[in-house]
Simulated assay, not measured.
Amino acid sequence: MTRIDATFARLAQEGRRAFVAYVMAGDPDAETATEIVKGLPAAGVDVIELGVPFTDPMADGPTIQLAGQRALEGGMTLDRTLDIVRALRAEDDTTPVVLMGYYNPIYSKGVDRFLAEATEAGVDGLIVVDLPPEEDDELCLPAQAAGMNFIRLATPTTDDKRLPKVLQNTSGFVYYVSITGITGTGAASAAKVGPEVARIKAKTDLPVIVGFGIKTPEAAREIAGVADGCVVGSAIVERIGKGDSVADVLAYVKSLADGAHSA
């Protein structure tokens, strides 16, 4: 059982929804990003989603693209991203960490070497947005063999014919993208999300977590109320990009976590 599995089992037993927070590794700089990551569990974050900066982030909107650019300009790499995870693990051995990014940096490093180093660092799961289920042999199956969860995205355009393929070999949780398009655009609607979550849950026992378009504690509560939890990314990254202090960023994260946990 991974840390992700254990966390969702505990939350289910407590009758609580999960709050997942996304931040970009190395944004605005390595030291500040590490401090933010280390502060997320105390702010109520159940799962940390840590972005790996990449030069061509095709699924991300302007806010996260800019965060990735800032991180890359500051010298952030895949190896230094793993160092942030190690810094967290020195203080916290229970909060799950999911790396979210693109396949190229992993491929360049070598899958076997990456999985060995990521496992040693304390990574629990992967979201790799440009590897479809048809490419499971590339990374998904080796990651699971290494004891890591491989988390997939389902979207409003994932129809009933495609859904079983998306769910195949998925573990940890299913990430439902509440709106079509890139990150940081639009607003999630519980009225639209609820039926879609129910459709997915009819096909899997995995938790379904909803992300994209959540910016307020009220929205976090509303969306978490029709799913097993919610993810907030762009709204947090935007605060970091504006230069908010670590304390202010973490206070905002806590308000979102409190919203999700009140669902």
Results as ranks from 00 to 15, higher is better:
Thr2Trp: 10
Thr2Tyr: 10
Thr7Cys: 13
Ala9Val: 12
Arg10Thr: 15
Arg10Ser: 14
Gln13Trp: 10
Glu14Val: 05
Met24His: 01
Gly26Ala: 08
Asp27Leu: 01
Glu31Pro: 10
Glu31Met: 12
Pro41Asp: 06
Asp46His: 14
Asp46Ala: 07
Gly51His: 00
Asp56Met: 04
Pro57Glu: 02
Gly61Leu: 10
Leu66His: 14
Leu72Asn: 06
Thr77Cys: 07
Ile84Arg: 03
Glu91His: 13
Glu91Val: 13
Thr94Val: 15
Thr95Pro: 04
Pro96Leu: 08
Val97Ile: 11
Val98Lys: 05
Asn104Phe: 09
Tyr107Ala: 14
Ser108Gly: 15
Leu115Asp: 05
Glu120Tyr: 04
Val123Arg: 09
Gly125Phe: 07
Val129Ile: 11
Val129Trp: 00
Glu135Cys: 10
Glu138Thr: 12
Cys140Tyr: 11
Cys140Met: 14
Asn149Phe: 09
Asn149Asp: 15
Leu153Tyr: 09
Pro156Trp: 13
Lys161Gln: 14
Val166Gly: 01
Leu167Tyr: 00
Gln168Met: 12
Ser171Cys: 07
Gly172Asp: 12
Val174Glu: 01
Tyr175Ser: 07
Tyr175Pro: 06
Thr185Trp: 12
Ala187Arg: 13
Ala187Pro: 00
Ala191Glu: 14
Val193Ala: 10
Pro195Val: 08
Arg199Ile: 04
Lys201Asp: 04
Lys203Cys: 09
Pro217Val: 08
Arg221Pro: 11
Glu222Asp: 15
Ala227Trp: 05
Cys230Gly: 04
Val232Cys: 07
Val237Ile: 08
Glu238Ala: 14
Arg239Lys: 15
Ser245Asn: 05
Ser245Arg: 04
Val253Ala: 04
Ser255Phe: 06
Ser255Asp: 15
Ala257Asp: 08
